[in-house]
């Protein structure tokens, strides 16, 4: 028996257990594109407007591999040492995608490889991923209960809303970014962020375990305001809750969802085709109509009345923060830890 070095054994074992723990790798043929993505409404929209509308007529068949974002990111990172990865395209939030790009797990993208790459809005353009939709984690509030729009991030700590401030447990990154801006002034101010979270605790902010729970709490009046994507605010308002949202004067955390092709994709060509399809104006319009997310391409257009509902003004768009993704990547675990300790300890 050949002696494997311990390092090599552990490396392969890590990848193997990651794959085993998180999902079973799908076996793909050349016309198959394996897409690592979220399920639910998001997955359905992809299926209807990207897979079935664009790629299948072109002869591709799409396999969705549904999982949570962190397992997907872990998979990208651990699989990079293998000759063949389990995904041909992977979808992640921008800060998660950043980590995968940083470790060199992703293929470089450009106008030659991805048709439509040139249409990407300049502020969303990146070398190793394409943005498929974006919105902002804005202050979403009950219009009937808070008559004056909360125009400043400081409103999230307004003692008048004691016990009525909602915090999505999933969006700890965005919530802590708000806390950092409100209490320190820069996005990279960890201490300021902790001070802000501590202040939330003292204001009896309600920690909510899921996005659905946030929606329910808004509907019931358990909470009056929260930080969540403007897109969610739009879809809940369509569902009958009297909601408004504000991009505060200090700015807001951008919510960008991106896609990329792993370097070791079995079907890199298919992966590139998928990137291109995501940038298709029709596909982007569908996301806008259904989920309230905005197109990421200059040739994308949505009906004016929808634009009025969900769009950002030039000024609002310019106010969106430019998060230091390296800082987030380095400190994400520490941020989660601080978040948990303060709010759940």
């Amino acid at each position: 028996m050949t002696r494997l070095s311990r390092r090599a054994f552990l490396a392969s074992a890590t990848a193997a257990s990651a794959a085993g723990l998180l999902c079973t790798p799908a076996i793909a043929q050349s016309s198959d594109i394996v897409v690592g993505t979220w399920g639910g409404t998001f997955g359905d929209l992809l299926k209807a407007n990207v897979d079935e509308a664009i790629l299948e007529p072109a002869g591709w068949s799409i396999l969705q591999e549904v999982s949570g974002p962190v397992p997907r990111r872990t998979k990208l990172i651990t699989e990079r040492m293998q000759r063949r990865g389990s995904m041909d395209a992977a979808l992640l939030a921008d800060f998660d995608m950043h980590a995968a790009a940083k470790v060199g797990a992703l293929e470089e993208l450009g106008e030659e490889t991805v048709p439509g790459y040139g249409n990407i809005l300049p502020f969303l353009r990146k070398s190793h991923s394409v943005p498929l939709i974006y919105s902002a984690h804005a202050i979403v509030y009950r219009k009937d209960l808070i008559p004056t729009p909360p125009a400043s991030v400081a409103e999230l700590w307004n003692p008048a809303y004691k016990g009525r401030i909602g915090l999505s447990d999933f969006l700890y990154t965005s919530n802590m970014a708000y806390a950092a801006i409100a209490n320190g002034g820069t996005l990279s101010d960890f201490e300021g962020a902790e001070t802000g979270v501590q202040a939330w605790r003292e204001l009896d902010a309600k920690l909510l375990p899921s996005t659905e729970a946030v929606g329910q709490a808004l509907a019931s009046g358990d909470i009056w305001l929260t930080v969540i994507s403007a897109a969610r605010g739009y879809s809940w308002r369509k569902g009958g809750i009297d909601l408004g949202w504000v991009i505060p004067e200090e700015g807001a955390f951008p919510a960008v969802y991106e896609a990329a092709v792993p370097k070791n994709a079995r079907n890199a060509e298919g992966g590139m085709a998928y990137m291109s399809a995501l940038l298709d104006p029709a596909a982007q319009a569908a996301f806008a109509a259904k989920m309230g997310y905005l197109p990421t391409v200059s040739n994308g257009s949505i009906p004016p009345e929808l634009e009025a509902e969900i769009g950002f003004t030039e000024a609002e768009r310019n106010r969106l923060w430019q998060p230091d993704l390296d800082f987030i990547m380095e400190n994400q675990a520490a941020m989660l830890d601080a978040w948990n300790r303060i709010l759940k300890g």
């Binding site: 552990l10 872990t74 990172i77 651990t78 980590a99 990547m329 380095e330």
Partner: peptide, 15 residues
């Protein structure tokens, strides 16, 4: 074995 490793934000863990 993992429990004796060191966490790394980028590469998950270091031996």
């Amino acid at each position: 074995r993992y429990s004796f490793n060191v966490f790394d934000p980028l590469f998950l863990m270091k031996q």
